[in-house]
Design a protein around this nucleic acid. Sequence first.
DNA 1: GCATGTGAAATAATTCACAGCA
DNA 2: TGCTGTGAATTATTTCACATGC
Lengths: 198, 198
Amino acid sequence: MYLRTLNSLEDAGTLMVSSRELAAPLGLNPAQVRKDIAYFGEFGRRGVGYNVARLRDHLAEILGMKTRRMVGIVGAGGHLGHALALHKGFEKRNFKVVALFDKDPRVIGQVLGENAIQHISELSETVKRLNIEILMLAVPATELNSVFDYILLSGITAVLNFAPVRLPSTDEICVHNVDLAVELEYLTFHLDRNSVVT
Amino acid sequence: MYLRTLNSLEDAGTLMVSSRELAAPLGLNPAQVRKDIAYFGEFGRRGVGYNVARLRDHLAEILGMKTRRMVGIVGAGGHLGHALALHKGFEKRNFKVVALFDKDPRVIGQVLGENAIQHISELSETVKRLNIEILMLAVPATELNSVFDYILLSGITAVLNFAPVRLPSTDEICVHNVDLAVELEYLTFHLDRNSVVT
DNA sequence: GCATGTGAAATAATTCACAGCA
DNA sequence: TGCTGTGAATTATTTCACATGC
């Protein structure tokens, strides 16, 4: 969030920014912003604030956004996988989608953007060959078990899971779960209360 | 999360469940589960546990999942909007996609599932006519401003925002931001540290 | 005996408030 | 004077531990 705010400040030609200015658009307390930034080092100048470009670069470095990451999509034959495969926004954030996988023989060979869908059985080989570091899991909850063995065997260490089932992180694999259904339920809960939940 | 766990327990034929059994698959502390549930009333029986079906029903009621909610998708002409429009999973969670909107004249009239894409200028009228309560925003960050006025004027109170820009909640409108880029950055941060982040 | 519900205790996160420096 | 960096104070969350009831 900080990185994105700094990027748009830079685009707007802002050179310096204070913790208060950084906090406001994100709905945060200025002290919170200072604590967060100071955690990684002393990037600000007292009485002045933070240099936008410098802080931006530091955060990009810290987040690992300076190195290009190879990404694979599992379940590319489905609606969500399809959308992810064609999404243009990953490129400028230094993520490159280099392989697509699916279990369904009917979609194998289908070309989405720069890549053709491969069978999931090729996952392990392709991950190693193309140096894929992150897998996006866009399969139905019911199919999770049938593809999870392939994922474990591939040796991948980072998984972004879109299936509405909580995949636990282990020592070998860091899973991050994105649950669209939960987000909707949150909104519904709000609707019944007629109050702003933030 | 509780609701989903209870649903699969019910599917498996389980009648009663303890806070420990509910906590384990979610990676929570049993006391946490009890506190969360007890917040809404006394649903358990001491020495026995919780009745799966009864607790499931109570939580569904509390979350507002028992009433059917009408949903509209803004930006249905894009990849993500397309995927959301065709997604089958909303139906069984009691959400019904009843209208699709886009700004681009070239996609107006295109049929996705049961609905044809309308121009965003029809938003306000359609929201009222079809009792739409929730809007999913699947537009690029750059297009947000041009559609946001329509959204405010439509009188909608719940918005699920997929654009990588934080839309603040106000008294009039409850916004929930889903940021796929942030999720990816989280994974990247992990990759550089070679440690499990949970 | 066993598991809930809940005060009390322990942890964690956030905010305050101010010393230190430009 | 203005804004950072950070201990101290505050507030919130999580966990413990046990009385209570089946």
